[in-house]
Design a protein around this nucleic acid. Structure first.
Lengths: 205, 205
DNA sequence: ATCTTAACGGAACTTCTGTCCCATTAGGGG
DNA sequence: CCCCTAATGGGACAGAAGTTCCGTTAAGAT
């Protein structure tokens, strides 16, 4: 079997191809907002984007593929991370940035869709990991700075602290499905901070 | 329009109907383990359960409906919660119980499916809330006991502490999709405990 | 034991999903 | 500027998903 070549649209990614991709990804997000991942239909996306459905099937294959590509697109837009001078300020900023993301109608719908897709599609799971992996690394620097300043115990696992800030917000979003509020975000940041100060994120513990 | 009556199978829930439900829910879980929520097909479930597909469509309507009913079934099986004598012991027990649940092939696949379904189906979302609401309440008693004993500050939000133990584990399961290990569970319990001891779950904070 | 009817199941049917083929359009190298 | 071909798009098609109709089975009341 001949080595299956790269995806369609990668050899000649000029004007038309790029326009098609943009139109399709926008249409995908619109559909996600209106119908959710479960209601995402390739035909519908093609119609909405004004492109042939053959093209959508050929380039993205499945709804999961669409959603994974959408996430990859979002991952490229770098998230500006704060440097407020204190861990507390930085962690609050982080929590609020997560809040803003999951609260935004388009982004929120997209995240939920990717997470749903990732439960049974490896491509979507990969896109999800890539997105959060990068984001967590960026914000982890704030924790490392805090350790340097002596605000947090040496050996503190910076990435884990950042994940601990996000986790309760995603728990609310996905599991308990309560509204993710600014108060919840604040509390989440402060709780992670309290645990970090107590050394619960340090190596030995 | 005549008030649409109650669901099929609720007026005469005797032997046959109960058997059909059991067979269908078992088949649903089997399919979830093998194919995931995305691959759950009503026809396939009907065939596997050995019942008519008409019956499955009539009683459950959609894959989300199947999964929601499955979750309701699981919610009825009460989860024994521990009383080890210390908060630390109880929170660890809680974390390990979550670990066990999400690690179990059948339960884990079911949880992921319900969470995926809940992102765009209100019925599934409701079943999910009911399941975790009850579970959290049960385990929250352990935190209340700890407050009574003076192990944790007065005014500690017991349910929030319990949610804080679970959150990082679900974050791993759903978002970062790293394996949920016993170490992760232990740490999660200890971090929630550290924050609670520091008063980060108390009223004012 | 008998009767009523809730619930089930088979089969035909419609709609939607996904594939294939081939003509058309336009990127980008020469 | 022209040519080659990557990429698109329409239309026809096969198969799966979902609906409807109606006859059959058995729960539960009398």
């Amino acid at each position: 079997m001949e080595q299956e070549s790269r995806l369609a649209g990668t050899v000649r990614p000029g004007g038309r191809t790029a326009k098609v991709r943009a139109a399709v990804l926008t249409a995908t997000q619109d559909e996600l907002v209106e119908r959710g991942f479960h209601g995402l239909s390739m035909d519908q996306v093609a119609a909405r984007a004004g492109v042939g459905k053959t093209t959508v099937y050929r380039r993205w294959g499945t709804p999961s593929g669409l959603v994974a590509d959408l996430m990859n697109e979002l991952a490229d837009e770098s998230s500006p991370h704060a440097d407020t001078g204190t861990v507390e300020g930085d962690l609050r900023a982080n929590a609020l940035s997560v809040l803003q993301a999951v609260t935004d109608p388009r982004l929120g719908a997209t995240f939920q869709a990717v997470i749903a897709a990732a439960t049974c599609d490896e491509e979507a799971a990969k896109a999800l990991r890539a997105f959060y992996g990068r984001r967590v690394e960026e914000w982890a620097k704030a924790v490392d700075r805090a350790v340097g300043r002596g605000e947090l115990p040496p050996g503190t696992d910076a990435k884990e602290v950042i994940r601990a800030v996000s986790a309760p917000l995603y728990y609310r979003l996905l599991v308990t499905r309560e509204p993710v509020t600014a108060e919840a975000a604040e509390r989440s940041a402060l709780r992670a901070l309290a645990a970090a100060r107590a050394g619960a994120f340090a190596e030995g513990a």
